[in-house]
């Protein structure tokens, strides 16, 4: 969902995008993952050999994907569920206690937007406004409450990331 919102937002911004989810037995839990490519140019392979950024939500994913990130890249970690540090000293690491922050906001489902808010604030790939528009399009809900909650999540994430 997080990757899909990001891909859609970037597409609406006029970028070339590809979104490649994992599927089958891996769709829930474990190391379910997706790859989003955003580019000003035509995207050749939707498979990222060495991604610039990774958003990691749980321990197995941290272990599995830490080696892939490009040197000088960025890893944003959900420190509520991930213990310890990746074995990399050539990438920037940001730890965000997303589950705890989401519970403070009163809805665990805001984890996605907390992490995305942090990601967008840190990378500048898109703007918070575009991201909110993307979210609206994906959720297809008009309820102000749900959108507001997600906006708060996004802002909290961005704020937290700003500390690094």
């Amino acid at each position: 969902m997080m990757g899909y919102i990001l891909a859609l937002t970037a597409m609406r911004d006029g970028k070339n995008v590809t979104y490649l989810p994992s599927y089958g037995a891996e769709v829930r839990g474990g190391t379910a993952n997706c790859t989003v490519c955003v580019s000003d140019e035509e995207i050749a392979s939707p498979v990222a050999s060495s991604p610039d950024f990774a958003v990691v939500l749980n321990q197995p994913s941290m272990i599995k994907y830490q080696g892939l990130i490009k040197s000088g890249g960025l890893m944003i970690i959900n420190s509520s569920l991930v213990e310890g540090d990746p074995e990399r000293d050539d990438i920037e690491i940001i730890k965000i206690p997303a589950n705890d922050m989401a519970l403070d906001l009163g809805n665990e489902k805001t984890i996605n937007m907390i992490m995305l808010g942090a990601f967008v604030a840190k990378t500048g790939i898109t703007t918070p406004e575009s991201l909110m528009n993307g979210l609206k399009e994906v959720l297809k809900v008009k309820k102000a409450g749900i959108l507001e909650l997600n906006r708060k999540g996004m802002e909290k994430g961005a704020e937290y990331a700003g500390r690094f």
């Binding site: 899909y4 070339n16 995008v17 590809t18 979104y19 490649l20 599927y23 939707p46």
Partner: peptide, 10 residues
């Protein structure tokens, strides 16, 4: 193939 089928792209 599985990748074309699952991938999203405009």
């Amino acid at each position: 193939d599985g990748m074309m089928g699952q991938m999203m792209e405009p």
